[in-house]
Design a binder for these strands. Sequence first.
DNA 1: AGCCGACATGTCAATCTCAACATGTAAGAG
DNA 2: CTCTTACATGTTGAGATTGACATGTCGGCT
Lengths: 184, 184
Amino acid sequence: MSLRAALLALIEVRGPSSGYDLTKSFEGSLAHVWQASHSQIYPELNRMAADGLLKVEEEGPRGRKTYAITAAGQAELHEWLTEAKPEQRVRDEASLRAFLLPLLPTQKAIELLTEQARAAEARKVDLEALRRKVGESSFGGFALERGLRHMAAEREWALWAIDRLQKSEEARTETVRTPTGEPE
Amino acid sequence: MSLRAALLALIEVRGPSSGYDLTKSFEGSLAHVWQASHSQIYPELNRMAADGLLKVEEEGPRGRKTYAITAAGQAELHEWLTEAKPEQRVRDEASLRAFLLPLLPTQKAIELLTEQARAAEARKVDLEALRRKVGESSFGGFALERGLRHMAAEREWALWAIDRLQKSEEARTETVRTPTGEPE
DNA sequence: AGCCGACATGTCAATCTCAACATGTAAGAG
DNA sequence: CTCTTACATGTTGAGATTGACATGTCGGCT
């Protein structure tokens, strides 16, 4: 359902568009939040036209078909935006990896977390650059800010986890050195 | 690949388990990070056994089959945990909704964001309760902390977005009331 | 004229996921 | 003995997604 909503929304804001245009849009800033390639988009546009949500407004050169949103399409989009209950479940490889982290030896876990903190920081820098480029209040601005905040949270979590692992490792080493009682 | 990794990891930490056991595990705290139902788990276990990652250790009453991890399975798990590059792409309905937020009239957007902030807070409270229940350093502890931080970020983002929308709405109303120059 | 890159649309097979359908056993309560 | 609940394992059909295959056009450069 999300692909439909995304396509309806894109056509709503861009005006009548071809599958090719929409594919390009999915390669732009939208790629940060949802991905779809032409092999998914073209069939979906055909289905949506068959369902009356879109209509082929114009057939141009090179077989180009321009889809426009219909009243039914606008209704469907509005319905999705306001009524449809958002999918709550997370299914995120990063979450799963965080869950399974204790399976790794401390040192290896710290290495991975360090890399992850670095990656989150890099992604944050990218998003900041994107914001400077597209301006404060461009279309995807809310999503951009959201991404930034989540990346910051991710990075801080990784640093917290590293710290925790290091402390427990120190405690362990200490215990080994002086198994009982005070040192010396 | 993630389902395989999750199943291998569960069997690694739980010891030999049946599909039924593993299905129950997916209904527990693991459900916060990854979901799988028995209709996905049973066939996957069979494939993994065929691939030599698991072996049927024991057949019990009621057709119960207990799967144990093999050396190849342990190798595969270790490989996934340490070598496999994590999937970076996000495909998250919440992100898409954030992206499309400007399509809504300000008031409606504020309503939805308010609900979202509430939902994030509720989820945060749930996770805190879970942590109190299972203890500080239980198996999923890192993922739990990560979830908490992301929920906090989500809530703060929603509040920020509400504030921003309210300010732009006030500015708009103000402009309407006094189209040019100073009031009065 | 020939070639290349961008434009433009499709199909297909494989994989993942979900909800629904389907079947049967064992244990305990009444 | 019957009923219910938990145990236990499947299959199947539909939808989502990906990567590879496939085809053809148009404009500009050499």
